[in-house]
Design a protein around this nucleic acid. Structure first.
Lengths: 203, 203
DNA sequence: GTTTCAGGTTAGTGGTCATTAACCAGGAAG
DNA sequence: CTTCCTGGTTAATGACCACTAACCTGAAAC
């Protein structure tokens, strides 16, 4: 017995494949963010990853699968990151500040996926959409739990709305036309978003 | 000399035409918000307005013109409304509160156009896009002017970022899955958004 | 060194869709 | 009452595009 089917041999080819797949997802993030899922052709997508057209089908079952992989990935990253951040915090208010910092960092450095997520989620097939929405819900819940601990005796549905609104604030980044240029500018911008988010959240 | 070319006779037909056009724009708002500009066919659009397919071309030059009319309209409404609100206020802080109230009201009652605006603006031809962006910039400027009066000695570009972030917060409404049901709920929700927006803006 | 087979490639293929053509009906104008 | 012409209609037409077929090449496996 050499290797179980799940155990993959690491060969030059498998590396190349993984690399190509990653390049495709990267290209998808950029292109979908720019023109929207329906505005990008498989041909465009392949081309942006240095491969042409139908080669994409060697990595994904179809165009919807690309979107699905992209959005599922980002939702998982957010949920995992959020749980780690919240778990490491010493108090609810530290947790909330950490979550804000984490979300701001994510939104600023992954503006494209954020944009795709709230623009093209509806283009997903019902099943995948359910999956992504479930991950999103869990992530929101991480916030709501901390907020509930920080602000007891508040209607949970109100808390959920607060969290959504704060996401709107933080995720407004991708819509911003004038992106900060220097690193200094960017740091100030992140601080601003964090302060505003905190103020809004603790109203 | 009967009538100048700009002066239109009001006839049964002209009324019917205006009505149909309005119905088409209404349908466009709903459908584009739901499936995105590229996800809606001219056929769908016509059907939603009780007319089929190519009849749309009797009212608009093409699909892009529909989007253009829709977005230009909303941008104008916002700018006009914003100017009235700001002009009627007795002080900068009253003006800001009025602007917030106005924007919240607009976002809540026109969630669909808001969604189309920040989702499909990029689908517009360069010229129309410029026009809409110019209107948006002016609207933002109305806010920035008041904010500058309320908070002197602050970098204007920072103020602009603040305003953008607050728009993100307020305009998060369309992304909210659980829409408030009762009128009471809705009023509470509007109040919440207003409070959060004010807190964020005055950080 | 040969055999496999995964990951590419270039031609279809069928469907969808924006836009145009050709035609029709009925209100407005005279 | 007749003439126009506008807002509709249904049938092309031509792009574009997702996906499939058929074929090729070179790394892995033996």
């Amino acid at each position: 017995m050499e290797a179980s089917p799940t155990e993959e041999r690491v060969t030059g080819r498998s590396i190349a494949k993984a690399t190509r797949r990653a390049a495709l997802l990267e290209a998808a993030a950029t292109l979908f963010a720019e023109r929207g899922y329906n505005g990008v052709s498989i041909e465009d997508l392949g081309a942006a990853a240095g491969v042409s057209g139908p080669a994409v089908y060697r990595h994904f079952a179809g165009k919807p699968s690309v979107l699905s992989a992209l959005l599922t990935g980002v939702s998982e990253d957010l949920l995992d990151g959020g749980r780690v951040v919240a778990g490491a915090a010493a108090s609810p208010d530290e947790a909330l500040k950490g979550l804000i910092r984490f979300q701001v960092e994510f939104a600023v450095s992954h503006a494209d996926v954020i944009r795709v997520q709230d623009r093209d989620l509806g283009a997903l097939a019902a099943d995948d959409q359910r999956g992504v929405r479930s991950l999103q819900r869990s992530y929101v819940q991480v916030w709501v739990d901390e907020l509930a601990a920080y602000r007891p005796d508040t209607d949970p549905s109100l808390l959920r709305r607060k969290v959504h609104a704060v996401f709107g604030l933080i995720n407004s980044t991708p819509h911003t036309t004038h992106r900060p240029s220097s690193a200094r500018e960017l740091a100030l911008f992140r601080d601003l978003l964090e302060e505003m988010a905190w103020a809004a959240l603790t109203v």
